[in-house]
Simulated scan of single mutants.
Amino acid sequence: MALRACGFIVFRRLASRIPSLDSIEYLLLQTSYGKHHWTPPKGHVDPGEDDLTTALRETKEEAGLGAEDLQVVDGFIQELHYEVQGKPKEVLYWLAELRDPAIAVTLSDEHQDYRWAKLDEACALAQYKDLQETLRAAHRHLQDKQ
């Protein structure tokens, strides 16, 4: 059975006279363990917990951003499948906009840094092809909704 995790692709829109996709930045957190990879906030599903509740809990724990800070974007969910230390893992990501682009991110001890990055930089930081494609899919979804 695959290990299951859930999280959010969190984005914010920078102030701009003309709203555009160029004003969007994505939140990535740098782990404080292993190879210090960059990832959106996510974490393991607790027994009896539903997936969306996990995503909200983990985003609050890892980045200090609660449900009151986020606006979940309808119609977007991505499921990733990969192996970690030889064991299957699946991750579900929803897309959520930060309601107040100026709100501070507060990291847990699981992470040592965070960055708001435009799509190209976010993909470069993400390193893993499936996560890069998830970020691009989120961007396309926002483009289609504009």
Results as ranks from 00 to 15, higher is better:
residue 7 G to P: 10
residue 10 V to Q: 08
residue 11 F to R: 09
residue 12 R to K: 15
residue 14 L to E: 15
residue 18 I to A: 12
residue 18 I to D: 08
residue 18 I to W: 09
residue 18 I to R: 15
residue 19 P to W: 05
residue 20 S to I: 08
residue 21 L to W: 02
residue 22 D to N: 14
residue 23 S to W: 10
residue 24 I to R: 07
residue 25 E to A: 03
residue 25 E to Y: 13
residue 26 Y to A: 09
residue 27 L to H: 02
residue 28 L to M: 00
residue 29 L to D: 02
residue 29 L to Q: 00
residue 31 T to R: 01
residue 32 S to D: 14
residue 32 S to L: 05
residue 32 S to H: 09
residue 33 Y to V: 14
residue 33 Y to C: 09
residue 34 G to W: 04
residue 34 G to H: 05
residue 35 K to D: 14
residue 35 K to P: 03
residue 35 K to W: 10
residue 36 H to C: 10
residue 37 H to E: 07
residue 38 W to M: 00
residue 39 T to M: 07
residue 40 P to G: 11
residue 41 P to S: 08
residue 42 K to F: 04
residue 43 G to L: 06
residue 43 G to A: 06
residue 43 G to C: 08
residue 43 G to Y: 04
residue 44 H to P: 03
residue 44 H to N: 10
residue 45 V to M: 14
residue 45 V to A: 10
residue 46 D to W: 04
residue 47 P to R: 07
residue 47 P to S: 10
residue 52 L to K: 12
residue 52 L to V: 11
residue 53 T to N: 13
residue 53 T to K: 15
residue 54 T to N: 07
residue 54 T to A: 13
residue 54 T to V: 00
residue 56 L to S: 02
residue 59 T to D: 09
residue 59 T to H: 01
residue 60 K to F: 14
residue 62 E to W: 03
residue 62 E to I: 01
residue 64 G to W: 11
residue 65 L to F: 13
residue 66 G to N: 09
residue 67 A to I: 00
residue 67 A to L: 13
residue 69 D to P: 01
residue 69 D to W: 13
residue 71 Q to R: 03
residue 71 Q to G: 01
residue 71 Q to P: 00
residue 72 V to R: 09
residue 73 V to E: 08
residue 75 G to I: 02
residue 76 F to G: 00
residue 76 F to H: 07
residue 77 I to G: 03
residue 77 I to C: 14
residue 77 I to L: 14
residue 78 Q to C: 13
residue 78 Q to Y: 10
residue 78 Q to N: 12
residue 79 E to I: 09
residue 80 L to R: 12
residue 81 H to W: 00
residue 82 Y to T: 08
residue 82 Y to F: 15
residue 82 Y to Q: 07
residue 85 Q to M: 03
residue 85 Q to D: 11
residue 85 Q to C: 00
residue 85 Q to L: 04
residue 88 P to Y: 03
residue 88 P to R: 02
residue 88 P to W: 00
residue 92 L to A: 11
residue 92 L to P: 04
residue 92 L to Y: 13
residue 93 Y to V: 01
residue 93 Y to G: 07
residue 93 Y to Q: 02
residue 93 Y to P: 05
residue 94 W to A: 04
residue 94 W to P: 06
residue 96 A to T: 03
residue 96 A to W: 10
residue 96 A to K: 06
residue 97 E to N: 02
residue 97 E to F: 00
residue 100 D to A: 11
residue 101 P to E: 09
residue 101 P to M: 12
residue 101 P to F: 11
residue 102 A to L: 15
residue 102 A to N: 12
residue 106 T to R: 14
residue 109 D to P: 01
residue 109 D to R: 13
residue 110 E to G: 01
residue 110 E to Y: 07
residue 113 D to Y: 14
residue 114 Y to V: 01
residue 118 K to I: 02
residue 122 A to D: 07
residue 122 A to I: 03
residue 123 C to W: 00
residue 123 C to N: 06
residue 127 Q to S: 04
residue 128 Y to L: 04
residue 129 K to Q: 13
residue 129 K to A: 13
residue 129 K to H: 14
residue 129 K to N: 04
residue 132 Q to M: 10
